[in-house]
Nucleic acid binder design. Sequence first.
DNA 1: CCCTCGCCTTGACGCAGATCAAGCTGGACA
DNA 2: TGTCCAGCTTGATCTGCGTCAAGGCGAGGG
Lengths: 248, 248
Amino acid sequence: MVAHDLVFHHQQCHDCPIRHRAVCARCEEDELSRLEKMKYYRSFQAGQTVIWSGDKMDFVASVVSGIATLTQTMEDGRRQMVGMLLPSDFVGRPGRTHAAYDVTATTDLVMCCFRKKPFEDMMLETPHIGQRLLEMTLDELDAAREWMLLLGRKTAREKIASLMAIIARRDAALRATDGQGPLVFDLPLTREEMADYLGLTLETVSRQISALKRDGVIQLEGKRHIVVPDMDRLLEEAGDDSDGGFLV
Amino acid sequence: MVAHDLVFHHQQCHDCPIRHRAVCARCEEDELSRLEKMKYYRSFQAGQTVIWSGDKMDFVASVVSGIATLTQTMEDGRRQMVGMLLPSDFVGRPGRTHAAYDVTATTDLVMCCFRKKPFEDMMLETPHIGQRLLEMTLDELDAAREWMLLLGRKTAREKIASLMAIIARRDAALRATDGQGPLVFDLPLTREEMADYLGLTLETVSRQISALKRDGVIQLEGKRHIVVPDMDRLLEEAGDDSDGGFLV
DNA sequence: CCCTCGCCTTGACGCAGATCAAGCTGGACA
DNA sequence: TGTCCAGCTTGATCTGCGTCAAGGCGAGGG
């Protein structure tokens, strides 16, 4: 909690792993060097809190590696995860001074932070940064709306299958796995975090994972390693359109 | 369904009721006259469908008056409303050719439509349109995330109270009601539409409205007209932070 | 004036998922 | 090598909301 979470990487933007997908995707060399001047890296260990809802936030950031989550908490402690940020995703809102959500590192995490004021100034002068951020925000809005359908209308079993499908898809996208063959991935979330994401209790998550395993929809090695022998079967269990037609 | 829903208003942008809050809020006179050339109005009656998910969509639009909703439907008919659009809200996504959601008029509705291609071209040349759209999209994302907490974690009673609070707040904002005194408004949604928004059944919606009425949290005149004698009490029932601290 | 039809309310009952409780498992550390 | 503990599984029971069913109410039309 009070550890030294500030680490300096002397990384250049032009060989950054998220260079072509983050908010800076369309920047030219000169713009990158301007960004270099306002940026700094921060690292977090799995479980650490990046920022609490309501805290002053004088930066915006891109996730470089690892996974961060956004959660909201009610006064009595009920929690709902409202976002899961993967490498290249953006954290923070230009024009806002305080964090709206708790941001937590669920795996070891590296973020590329930009001091807010210089970044906002640059956004005004460099329209394509705002354009890229608009694209990314629209994608997040679509994802949030897909999640609303899940939270409002899907059964516990469908919720778990949907989560597996989404993680499998994202994992495949990050690793540019070409396609067929059984999908294999590790769950980046604990059962409790999955419950917070899906609007369930951790007991129900555990039971439904066991049920999907029993029915052969997934295979489980240890508690985190998942094998999906048949992606279509999983999508069917998720209640999604089986044609796999995906926006974004 | 096959009615003449195309109506021509010969309205000038500069005396448009949503002029200062819509996507065109920051446009100068010359920019407005460019927009005039690519715009046309469409009117819909309550209950009419504006566009079906998956349909080709060659326009984007602002809601001028009335209320539109966005809904997603699963193959077996389960429905979840994922957005409620009030005057000045934006419909459609630059860069996307097909509608992602069913868009429906829940009240009589007037939309100001822009032909997509000219609008996209203008966005590239006029950064502040994209900037305004980014602000609006970030607001919608916040609203969607607040809704995720509601759908995932709130009880039926809290959901109803939250919906009442949101409609009351929006209604007050639209009419620039200054503040204190009992809030009065009409529900713009049927019980079934509320159920689709809240992830409930219409029977549960009806029962919880009756319960809130019985307990004096709201008063009900007819089936749609609501009086809120004590907004703090309502917010308490909604499970929100009672300090009313609101972002956006 | 009555009939109809969409919208809404209320009751009885059942079940999916929450809650409460007990124990398992595997990695970290002494 | 034992023990500790976070994370997980599984069982028993409870309950909030869904489902099924039967009317009520009020606006519009004949």
